[in-house]
Design a binder for these strands. Sequence first.
DNA 1: GCATATTTTGTAATAAAATTACATAAATTA
DNA 2: TAATTTATGTAATTTTATTACAAAATATGC
Lengths: 283, 283
Amino acid sequence: MNYQNLLSSINVTFDSLNKSEKKVAGAILDDPEAATRSSIAILAKKAGVSEPSVNRFCKRFDTAGFPDFKLKLAQCLVSGVKFVNSNVQLNDNVFKYTPKIFDNAIHDLVAIKNQIDSSIIEKVVDQLLKARRIFFFGLGTSGAVARDAENKFFRFDLPVSFHVDVLTMRMLSAAAKPGDLFFMISHTGRTKAIIDATDDARGNGAIVVGLTTPGSMLAKKSDLAIEVLVSENTEEYMAMTSRIVHLVILDVLATGFILSKGPEFLNHMEKINLSLKPTRYKQ
Amino acid sequence: MNYQNLLSSINVTFDSLNKSEKKVAGAILDDPEAATRSSIAILAKKAGVSEPSVNRFCKRFDTAGFPDFKLKLAQCLVSGVKFVNSNVQLNDNVFKYTPKIFDNAIHDLVAIKNQIDSSIIEKVVDQLLKARRIFFFGLGTSGAVARDAENKFFRFDLPVSFHVDVLTMRMLSAAAKPGDLFFMISHTGRTKAIIDATDDARGNGAIVVGLTTPGSMLAKKSDLAIEVLVSENTEEYMAMTSRIVHLVILDVLATGFILSKGPEFLNHMEKINLSLKPTRYKQ
DNA sequence: GCATATTTTGTAATAAAATTACATAAATTA
DNA sequence: TAATTTATGTAATTTTATTACAAAATATGC
């Protein structure tokens, strides 16, 4: 757990806490600064629970105990990530909206980090390792994510491409074969072209991985779905945090892929990195 | 005494401390991070003094006692402290590397949020509002960022395009005119094609904004530079956090643009969002 | 240089705080 | 509704920090 965001973590996991843990969380969120200055007895009293309940609460958040928890809480207060009232307002000036946009992204990354099902990640990495070919499909915002994914995965010594053209998507999924992996990126998970391609590709025996919102059509139709639930309020001003989270998840998958390939694979990648040298001015 | 500078306070006043206080100061300065995790007994032993000497040392630095001292020491370490254990290791399994990748992204977003110069953001927003045309240039990873930027800014009712082709870049910058805004995205800030285009575009009276690393060639040559310093250790496994930060900064710029346009501009954007409805299955 | 005051430091006792073990209560499941 | 699991509190224990006081060490004045 990242101590820079202990507060966000508490906030994010609040609903999954049990009764007395919720009381403790409430007492801390009510005035985190005061919590760092309290003894376990004082905080227990404020929360209306016993001292061991506070202690158990601390351990649940991966801290060694109450003193360690206070320390990390104090540290996360320094960085000052706000998690409430982080919505951009019409009359915000640059000093107000800038940290808010950052906070939204940070908050959602913390949330997904805590929610993500690593066993799904593991399964997807396995499929990526097995795949004969990989296609990344995405439209609109997710098109940029697909492009970024291709920019990473093409280094992996197997045929990788990304597609943002619905006609090409149709043709490729119609011609899908076992051994192909179609990686579908769609925040809504309802984009017709993506869903149609999913049906076609699976019908032809290819594996489909969906990166999408929980319970969406795409999530249901994919062989493996990586489900990402982000805050709803970021779309109005187009600071869609879902794509940020998607990119980080693709980083995770790429990392898993490289680690599975073993250390000598890093040489192969270094060769690719070195190829860029002549494109840059020396400094 | 300001607890944000507790460490430097210890450093500065070192000479005026008495013998055992010097020993304590030495033990803390030697490894401040470890000090925050020690009990008073352990630190006393390390310093070779008695426990009350440590306690007196703490009180000399205007803290309530040892626990309070540790808290404030931990807080003053936050800004500088590196994520020592957040680097992916070769033998990490999925449950280890997944949170690490997230933590790296989160850490850098928090860092940049606290460092970013909002007045530069404001100036860039002003230029975006004034621009007659906007070009986003980026190569490789930054190409995906440029594409994402275009996907946002094309909604703003002015000619916007992104380019990932160096020949097109040359032609466009050669044909640049006053009123044009060239938005250059380059993490290294040394990519030849981008630097050359920057020179050409500025020579022709266009405004150039650079999104790059501090002090880079691009930063120096741009009219306005948004400088982003991220951790160095994320490139080996290609989880480049710089692009994540770049995307969030483009979100900030887009938000600034929309807010400056006023509330009626949201209607225009809503129209664009509604246009996507027929492309999706109902759920 | 020696007696006296002052400061520094440690020992031991005390107090405070946190943690653990265990028992009871609540909630869930069959 | 009984059995099982989970959640929670009480009380004992342990750890940790602080205080009071005495002994050194150092400094000061004669």
